[in-house]
Design a protein around this nucleic acid. Structure first.
Length: 592
RNA sequence: GGUGGCAUAGCUCAGCUGGAUAGAGCACCUGCCUUCUAAGCAGGCGGUCCUAGGUUCGAAUCCUAGUGCCAUCACCA
């Protein structure tokens, strides 16, 4: 039972005893720092039950609690706020109960699984900063859901089908001279990305030529030979043309290899992969079924639609007149396929940018109409764009921040800073590089994850990512300092001390209170699908610890008991930092 | 135009189911390294919480209307 539950029970009893009235809920908040106390009871809502002066009510309750509850040591009332002082013993006992629990705050895994989809890139474009936000969010939410007690499968849908793929294939055939990632030394995704850009350049050139010859621009856009050729290629692909499919496989293979490298560098992973080219057919099957059951209807031209006007939305196409699949078709197929493959999955989270809010609203609704009961547990983890000072990122205009480049830049910045400080001089180059990567990535990940997912992020490549203040490195630094202390502590820290006669330093108590919050924060973050809550919690914990660290001597404590306790407390904080950062996908260094 | 999201200090962001004098970081200004790592600590400066109404003992938070920015309203994915 938590202290709040204990207090709540007693207050209810007090109410019936003192006023013969029944109280349903008690409202608590943590006591503001300028007042004495640990927990505050807000008396105003109680005035509905008994009509009396809030200050007097506070006095009565405070007096009752001191008399009847062991943990309550003292109280004071300020303007209807009853501030309760909790006995140090309570906090010490609590601390002893968690100090050896390496997975404190984490719930054991249940049988129910959630599938988290993220990344889901376009195979023509190398990953950029926007994908980084997606990947970090998806990975982190998956980890948070695990910590909150869910079984989780991480997955993605790879957009490997359609005209856009043919564009880079065609450009490569025409201008590639047989180039491969090996022959050029380029990452596969970058190589293919270049040909996608090349296609666009040639396409524009052809349009210009046509216009110069007198073709209206609208027509020129449709008649450019290179585009017609790409469309022809798509038809061949759909017909299963051997050569086209072989090329498609080869080039996609290059891209996947390139992506895997980026994922590895970014520290994200997946349990399973889905390919649009595999699932769109299943989607079609269910469209046919839905047509029979009346969920969908057919228009005169043969196209299939879903009428969502009763739900306040429009009609939505789910199959083209020529019978080919649209985006929605394959998403329906993918969802159903996943549940078939993983029957323990009871819900899914889709990490996709907020420009697709409407799409997912419709998708979820259609799945519900099709009668899948898991459809009620679908969640669109919608997040805001990452903007640059120059505006939106556009691949074709070259105004993107490339993911690989950014990761390298970050660790270079970490390297420069670290070398200035010179604390790692006795490490070899490889060890140093590992730490630079940890810090650089930590800065980047924290910078992105600390912001509420639904808000847009303005990213200034030159100034945005800082290493001081509310940043990843600040928190990593605190962790590293604690490790230094633990290395120096030459005694057994695993013992459990009887602490009944110890009195807590104010900073120690604050730290324990902060630790106490962790399990609740995890649950909250899971419910809200928000890594930002974990990030902010960790920051508060670390601020509190740093204040403790600077104001209180840990290894220089007055007596052995106190020294052991402080080291143990530091250890528990370090452990919590590590676990919390793990939920964000951020590593912590032993030294920095 | 319809729908959805966002709006808090010069900048980047917190602010949980309404609660005490709205909090951090950066920037700017003061102090603190012969003592556990100064990527730190202690303090100062800085706010009509977009506007106007409403609900309430109490509103940055909830409701209504408006303003601004963004997204979306494709037989593109």
């Amino acid at each position: 039972m938590t202290i709040q539950e204990t207090l709540s029970q007693h207050i209810k009893v007090a109410f019936s005893k003192l006023y013969q009235a029944e109280l349903n809920t008690v409202e608590f908040q943590s006591t503001r720092k300028e007042f004495e106390g640990d927990i505050t009871v807000v008396t105003f809502p109680m005035l509905r039950v008994v009509k009396m002066n809030p200050a007097q009510l506070g006095e009565d309750l405070g007096k009752y609690l001191v008399e009847h509850v062991d943990e309550v040591k003292a109280y004071n009332v300020v303007k209807g706020f009853l501030n309760i002082v909790i006995d140090d013993v309570f906090y010490l006992n609590f601390f002893n109960s968690i100090k050896d629990d390496n997975s404190y705050g984490f719930k054991p895994q249940s049988e129910k699984a959630i599938m988290v989809e993220y990344s889901s890139p376009n195979t023509n474009k190398p990953l950029h900063l926007g994908h980084i936000r997606n990947n970090l969010l998806g990975y982190s939410v998956a980890e948070i859901l695990k910590a909150a007690g869910h079984k989780v499968y991480k997955t993605q849908i790879i957009n490997d089908r359609g005209i856009h793929i043919c564009k880079s294939m065609l450009a490569w055939e025409r201008y590639g001279n047989g180039e491969t990632p090996k022959s050029t030394g380029l990452k596969g995704d970058k190589l293919v990305g270049n040909y996608y850009v090349k296609f666009d350049q040639e396409y524009k050139k052809e349009i210009t030529d046509l216009v110069a010859q007198g073709t209206p621009e609208e027509d020129a856009k449709k008649q450019a030979p290179i585009l017609l050729e790409a469309q022809d290629m798509l038809r061949k692909w759909e017909a299963g043309d051997k050569d086209v499919v072989a090329l498609w496989k080869t080039m996609n293979g290059w891209v996947y290899e390139g992506f895997e490298t980026t994922y590895k560098n970014l520290g994200v992973d997946f349990d399973c992969y889905y390919y649009e080219s595999d699932t769109y057919l299943l989607g079609k099957e269910f469209i046919a079924e839905g047509l029979k059951s009346g969920v969908f209807f057919k228009k005169e031209d043969g196209s299939v639609w879903c009428d969502l006007t009763e739900d306040g939305l429009d009609e939505k196409i789910v199959l083209r007149a020529d019978g080919t699949a649209v985006y929605m078709t394959q998403d329906i197929g993918t969802a159903i396929q996943r549940i078939k493959d993983y029957p323990d999955v009871e819900g899914m989270v889709y990490t996709v940018g907020n420009e697709q809010d409407y799409h997912f609203k419709v998708l979820f609704l259609i799945l519900k109409k099709l009668g899948f009961d898991w459809a009620k547990n679908l969640y669109h983890l919608s997040y805001g764009m990452v903007d640059l000072p120059s505006g939106k990122m556009k691949s074709r205009e070259g105004t993107v921040v490339d993911a690989d480049d950014l990761i390298v830049e970050m660790s270079n910045t970490a390297k420069e800073l670290s070398q200035e400080l010179g604390k790692l001089d006795d490490y070899n180059d490889q060890e140093k590089q590992t730490i630079y990567n940890t810090i650089g990535l930590g800065a980047l990940k924290y910078f992105i994850l600390k912001v509420d997912p639904k808000k847009r992020i303005l990213f200034d490549p030159k100034e945005s990512v800082d290493f001081q203040g509310n940043t990843g490195p600040f928190i990593q630094y605190t962790y590293a300092r604690i490790q230094a202390i633990l290395r120096k502590a030459d005694f057994d820290t695993s013992i459990t001390q009887s602490l009944s006669d110890t009195s807590l330093h104010e900073k120690e108590k604050e730290l324990i209170k902060q630790l106490e919050l962790f399990p609740e924060v995890i649950q909250n973050a899971a419910q809200n699908h928000s890594p930002a809550l974990i990030a902010n919690y960790t920051y508060n914990l670390v601020k509190e610890f740093n204040s403790f660290y600077q104001n209180v001597s840990i290894l220089g404590a007055d007596n052995q008991n106190e020294k052991v306790f402080r080291v143990q407390l530091s250890q528990a904080v370090a452990n919590t930092i590590k676990n919390a950062f793990g939920l964000l996908g951020i590593d912590v260094p032993e030294r920095m």
